[in-house]
């Protein structure tokens, strides 16, 4: 297992996950992360056969496929109904300009 994460890495993970954490939260998050990672480091000890195939999903069947058929879309009013901000046609989001990064 890699070493437990240093604080700059915690900051970077928070940035990657788009979660704002203040200094205190970052610190405590780093501590908890360290705690869990040291707990899961026991996986290192598990001996695996060389050819073991990872198991990603509990169902290993194949081919869930649908035909190329149109379904009625959801009316726009209904889709936009839950939107925090919209003009009735579009979702509106704050502008994408320079990050006011610390």
């Amino acid at each position: 297992m890699p070493d437990t994460p240093e604080q700059p890495i915690v900051n970077q993970v928070a940035r990657l996950a788009r979660i704002h954490l203040d200094e205190q939260q970052l610190k405590s998050s780093g501590e908890k992360l360290e705690q869990i990672l040291s707990f899961v480091s026991q996986l290192e000890q598990v001996e695996l056969p060389e050819d073991v195939i990872p198991f990603f999903g509990a169902i290993e069947s194949v081919n869930a496929i649908r035909d190329d058929q149109l379904q009625t879309s959801v009316p726009r009013e209904k889709i936009l109904d839950n939107a925090p901000e919209s003009d009735g046609e579009f979702y509106l989001v704050p502008p994408v300009f320079k990050q006011t990064d610390s």
């Binding site: 058929q69 379904q71 959801v74 726009r76």
Partner: peptide, 16 residues
């Protein structure tokens, strides 16, 4: 999903 891929329709009218 079954929404249409047609181009040029009214915004957000082809979603589910």
């Amino acid at each position: 999903c079954g929404c249409s891929t047609r181009f040029g329709e009214a915004a957000n009218s082809q979603t589910c």
